[in-house]
Computed example of a mutant assay.
Amino acid sequence: MTLFNSKKAGMLFGSVVAASLAFATVAAEARDLRGWNIHVEDYPVSHGMEAFLKEVDEKTGGEISGKVFHAGVLGSQPDAIEQTRLGVIDFGVFSLGPMGQVVPEANVVSLPFIFKSVSQMYEVMDGEPGKALSKGLEAKGLVALGYYDAGARSFYTSAKAITEPADLTGMKIRVMNNDLFVGMVDSMGGNATPMAFAEVYQAIKTGVVDGAENNPPSYESTNHFEVAQFYSLTQHLIIPECLCMSKRTFDSLTPEQQAIVIEAGRNSTELQRKLWQEREAASMAKVAEGGVAVNEIADKAAFQAAMEPVYAQFLEQSPDLAGLVEMFKNAE
């Protein structure tokens, strides 16, 4: 082989190696994300998550793709939160209720009447209070990309409507197993009864409890409206859900990819909130057709005043969260 041919072959070999290295670099940067979701596929949260992943895939040119695993197939919510913190799961949508066991700041949004309305919750969570809560999440290994709507919880009862706190006196009301929610009902004179959600229908039907509380889609989809035909819109709990990414995953992305993820999270949140409102409207229409007496409560001042012992106990147990509680309470 001549010297010229040797140089030419060397140059060709070098080009092949360089191309191979470039391809390997691209391949190494490609990510296949795993997303956790407790809900079924046809649900506002699920559609929001799918839209998020699709946008990220498209805007990164396929560098970041993946799959959302619906219906809790990747494990329970507490387990999934921990796996996301560790980077085993890359992202998920988690209720801020159980999140409080890991992130103390999240407990603030589980306080009754901390939000004035669902629309106000949007503004608060998109504003400074939400950013303060997000810092608490990040300190525990979770990056908040958006706060989804999970509806407002209201009382539904079998015998009468709830128009003021005194109406709950002596009534047995099923609540989630959380001291805050037990205290909420007890402070209004009711008898809070923690119980598995799957048992509620039969418990109301047989009189074991006099009612329960939940958002419209849950009230409707479980057919609880068949046995509890008074729905009083107290909206006492408005607990958002967080579209969260593992900080380990987020930190491994390039700045350009991080910007795409943040934008996709914001767009996904707007879509999910719109879909949730549509779902709520459909649920309310269905329960009305089913004969439910829907009781609007324009002035919730008496209910809010009854929560003073709940707030006092919470702040006694978590004095370091007093500033955050005030920030949320005073938000417009």
Rank of each mutant, 00 (worst) to 15 (best):
P319V: 06
S117P: 10
C244Q: 04
V143C: 07
Y201A: 03
K205Y: 11
L180Q: 00
M11E: 08
F4G: 15
K300I: 09
E226M: 13
N37P: 09
S218P: 13
R266N: 12
I173P: 13
A30E: 09
E289Y: 13
R174H: 11
F314D: 01
F91V: 07
H236R: 00
K8Q: 14
Y148I: 14
A228V: 01
S218G: 15
K135Y: 09
M307L: 10
I260R: 03
N107E: 11
I38V: 15
S95N: 10
Y147V: 03
S134W: 05
I162N: 03
K286R: 09
E278R: 11
V175I: 12
G207I: 00
R279Y: 11
E256C: 08
V118T: 13
Y201Q: 06
K67F: 12
N215D: 15
E332H: 01
A285S: 06
N178H: 10
A106R: 04
S76P: 07
F328A: 02
F113Y: 10
L253R: 02
F225Y: 08
N191T: 15
A312S: 12
L324H: 01
M184W: 00
F4Y: 09
K205R: 13
E199P: 15
K54Q: 09
R31A: 14
V287R: 01
K54F: 07
D42N: 12
S154A: 01
Q304H: 08
R174L: 12
S154K: 02
K59Q: 12
P255C: 05
Q277I: 10
G265T: 08
A203T: 13
V124H: 03
Q317T: 11
P44C: 00
S252D: 02
G141R: 05
L53D: 05
K205E: 14
G151A: 04
T193V: 14
Q77W: 04
A282K: 12
N107S: 08
D90G: 13
L253V: 04
T234E: 06
S283D: 05
G291Q: 03
E263Q: 11
E164G: 02
T254P: 04
L180V: 09
T234P: 13
P129D: 15
D210R: 05
G14D: 04
R266A: 14
A27C: 01
A285Y: 01
F91N: 07
A159Y: 02
T25I: 15
D126Y: 10
K205P: 14
L233D: 05
D149R: 08
Y201I: 04
M307D: 12
M188S: 01
R31D: 11
K7S: 13
E213W: 05
L233T: 08
H70Y: 14
D251T: 11
Q120E: 06
D179A: 12
P309S: 03
A161H: 08
K286V: 06
I297D: 01
L271I: 08
S119Q: 12
L74D: 11
L253I: 04
V310R: 00
E138Q: 05
E82D: 15
D167T: 01
Q77P: 10
E105C: 03
